[in-house]
Amino acid sequence: MFFHIVLERNMQLHPRHFGRNLRENLVSKLMKDVEGTCSGRHGFVVAITGIENVGKGLIRDGTGFVTFPVKYQCVVFRPFKGEVLEAVVTMVNKMGFFAEAGPVQIFVSNHLIPDDMEFQSGDMPNYTTSDGSVKIQKDSEVRLKIIGTRVDATEIFCIGTIKDDFLGVINDPTTA
């Protein structure tokens, strides 16, 4: 799920950036630092949408760096148990398949794949129904439901299922 929230961060800025463009430099450094990171609490920071305010800078003794407390608005993505996501399959193996929904990795184990789909090994390992009409392989797009998440301080990993109504392949690259 996506959230638009306000976060705060203490930015350290090198003295060489002081000048007319101090603020722009601060924002670009913030984006570089923050976008794409993951915190267990808020999820993945997808994009910074604006700066709320920049507090008073504090000059560090000895280094000349200045610390600014910056409040910024951002879009975060946090997967939840029970959430339905669309994801792209990245790897298929005997144990199931891995898929990515943006920054999140999701594993679907083979017992959470419908029983009528069987693993076919080979050059392009895939899961196929007995009549061959549905095939899950690398780069397939699937809709899946998250049934478990592991949230570490800097990492989120999910397991999902496609063994439910309206879940499964939504776009097969080989037929498209």
Partner: peptide, 8 residues
């Protein structure tokens, strides 16, 4: 299954 990424 949550460890899957590390095990592959």
């Amino acid at each position: 299954a949550l460890d899957a990424l590390r095990l592959v």
